[in-house]
Amino acid sequence: MSNGLSLADQIRVELRADIIGGRLLPGMPLVESELVNTYNASRNTIREALHGLGQEGLTHYVRYKGVVVRRLSSDEVKDLFRVRRTLELQAIASARPLSECQADRMLDAIEAAQLARDREDWRAVGTHGLRFHQQVVRLLDSPLFDEFFTNVVAQLRLVFCAAPDEALFQAPWLVRDRQIHQWLVEGDKARAGEAMEVYLDDSERLLLNMFSQSLRH
């Protein structure tokens, strides 16, 4: 195939994109027969794609239900933020001055998040916000890190969807993304890095608080 991916991998990538886009939510079943019809693929191909999603930590098997989209635990949230700090802070610290293309890709994600916020589509706000952070990681100029972080983003999306009040969670971050972008454009890596570190600390704390509140109800 022209993109070098098998059909099973193409389906896995599309399903992962549906998770990142907020179209597949935690607890949703992935019904084999429906996917066979949707993708015009064999059962073996669909099973291979679902197995791949399971290896990425995005699905798991539930007895009597089959394969479902995963709900992540608070310990897994902490681990995701460990990864985010490692990659995003290093990307900022080691970044060369932004090219026009890099700056524009970040700004595109921010503007898309702003449009989504204006229409109060908080799920889309979260998706576009994550796109901005993918662009930050792309500053490392590593296709392997890009692919790895895409999986991290998909898991984060599942965490965001599980937040009892996604609007409350998403509201604070857009203005911070804009400020980090501006400092990167200006070449002020120190302030951008400090702002990102505080951003990730605050984001993790808020998510974990939401998790603990949902467990109490």
Rank of each mutant, 00 (worst) to 15 (best):
L206G: 05
E147N: 09
D75P: 01
L107H: 14
L72Q: 03
L98P: 01
G129P: 15
G54T: 09
V159W: 14
H51I: 05
S142K: 06
L50I: 03
L139E: 02
E197M: 05
L24K: 13
V136Q: 02
S33H: 10
E194G: 00
E76R: 01
D202N: 11
A171L: 12
Q170V: 02
V198R: 15
G21P: 03
A195L: 12
D121T: 05
A103L: 11
E48V: 10
A103N: 04
A109Q: 07
R71C: 01
S214D: 08
F169N: 05
L206D: 11
E166N: 05
A167L: 02
R131N: 15
G193C: 04
I46M: 04
R105K: 13
Y39V: 00
A195D: 09
E147M: 10
L115E: 15
I180W: 03
N44D: 12
T38P: 05
R178H: 03
L184D: 06
S94K: 12
K78F: 10
V69N: 06
Q135M: 08
V198G: 07
V31M: 13
R205K: 13
G57I: 07
D165S: 07
L207M: 13
V175M: 15
N209V: 13
S142G: 00
V198I: 15
A154C: 05
S214F: 10
V31A: 08
E204L: 09
R12S: 12
D146T: 05
D146C: 00
S99V: 04
M1L: 07
H133T: 15
D121H: 11
E166L: 11
R178P: 04
V198S: 10
R84C: 02
P143F: 01
T86F: 11
G66Q: 08
T38F: 08
A167M: 09
V67N: 04
D188L: 00
M210C: 02
V125I: 03
F211K: 04
L87E: 00
P172E: 13
R96V: 12
F169E: 12
G54F: 06
A95Y: 02
Q155C: 12
H217E: 10
S214M: 12
A190K: 15
P172F: 00
R16C: 04
Y61M: 09
L200F: 05
L158Q: 06
Y39H: 02
